[in-house]
Simulated scan of single mutants.
Amino acid sequence: MPLPFLTVDRTFEAASDSALPYDDRERWRRPYRPGPWRVAVAALCLMLASFVLFAAVLIALTGSASSAGTVFAIALVIIVGALRLLRMGVWVSGRGVRQVGFLHTRTVPWERVVTVRTLQQPVRWLGLPRTVQGQALTLVRRDRGAQDAPPLLTTHGLDFLARVSAFDRAAGAVQVWAAEYARG
């Protein structure tokens, strides 16, 4: 079963003649691969969901249908959570930059973007309250500036923990999109 949200277009990695080698620039795409930590957590959630689904079948065979339905609904919530976890990240298109979180999605049109830059600053480790020194890709907007803007990407997130070169490639890709479309 193909999972398009896990793939990244290989044309971006292979192309050297054009900064934006895509034919359809209006389609939202993530310019980097999901990190191994994100994929591992999602895989563990899906494995847990398979056990919960198995329990739902056993409860349906031996117990009440309402209890089985409740356990089945719990399994569906776990599956949806795992898929949403895989979808999280930064997505770009010709229309703007989109930051997909677990419970919310924030889209900023390129017309509102002044610049996208990499800064050395304290960043959250794996999204937890603990902060460590690292790099963050930040977005400066025309209407808000740089105040209170959460970083788009960090070196200590689920996608780039212990993968600084992957962070540099992803930050460079987002900066190229911003340089192309945020003019004016």
Results as ranks from 00 to 15, higher is better:
T131K: 14
T115C: 02
M88K: 04
A65H: 04
L139D: 10
L61G: 06
R95N: 10
S64F: 06
G96V: 11
L119W: 00
L86H: 03
I78R: 10
A73D: 07
F102C: 02
Q133D: 13
L103R: 13
T138K: 05
R141D: 00
R98A: 04
R98Q: 14
I78V: 15
I74E: 04
V97G: 06
M88T: 15
R117T: 12
T115D: 14
G94N: 06
G134T: 09
I78L: 15
V116L: 04
G101R: 06
T115E: 15
Q121W: 00
T70A: 09
S66K: 10
T62K: 07
S64C: 03
L83N: 12
W91V: 09
A82H: 10
G134S: 11
G127S: 07
P122L: 02
L103H: 07
W125N: 12
L137G: 05
S66H: 10
R87H: 08
T105W: 01
L61H: 02
V114W: 00
V140R: 15
V97C: 10
R95I: 02
Q135C: 05
Q133C: 03
I78M: 13
V90F: 06
A75N: 08
A68M: 06
T131R: 15
Q120I: 03
W125E: 09
A65M: 12
V80M: 03
P122A: 03
G127W: 05
A136F: 03
W91Y: 05
V80A: 13
R87T: 01
V132H: 05
L103M: 14
T131W: 01
V123F: 10
V123E: 09
V100W: 00
Q133I: 01
L83Y: 12
T105D: 11
M88S: 04
F102Q: 12
L119Q: 00
R117F: 02
R98D: 08
A68K: 09
A75G: 14
R87F: 01
V116D: 03
A136W: 01
S64G: 15
E111V: 10
I79F: 02
P109A: 07
L128P: 00
G81F: 13
V71Q: 04
W110M: 06
A65Q: 12
R117A: 14
G94A: 11
T105F: 00
G89V: 10
V140N: 10
R112S: 09
S93P: 04
V123I: 11
M88C: 12
T131G: 01
L86K: 08
R124A: 12
S66V: 15
V114I: 13
A82C: 07
S67E: 14
R98S: 13
S64N: 14
H104I: 05
L86Y: 07
Q121P: 00
L83A: 08
L76G: 14
G63C: 05
P129D: 09
Q135F: 11
R124D: 08
L76C: 13
V140E: 14
P129F: 02
L76H: 01
G96E: 08
T70E: 01
R95L: 07
R84M: 11
L103A: 15
V90P: 12
S64R: 14
V132N: 07
S64Y: 02
V71T: 15
A65N: 06
L103N: 11
G69R: 07
R141I: 03
I74F: 11
L85I: 11
L126A: 09
S64V: 02
S93V: 11
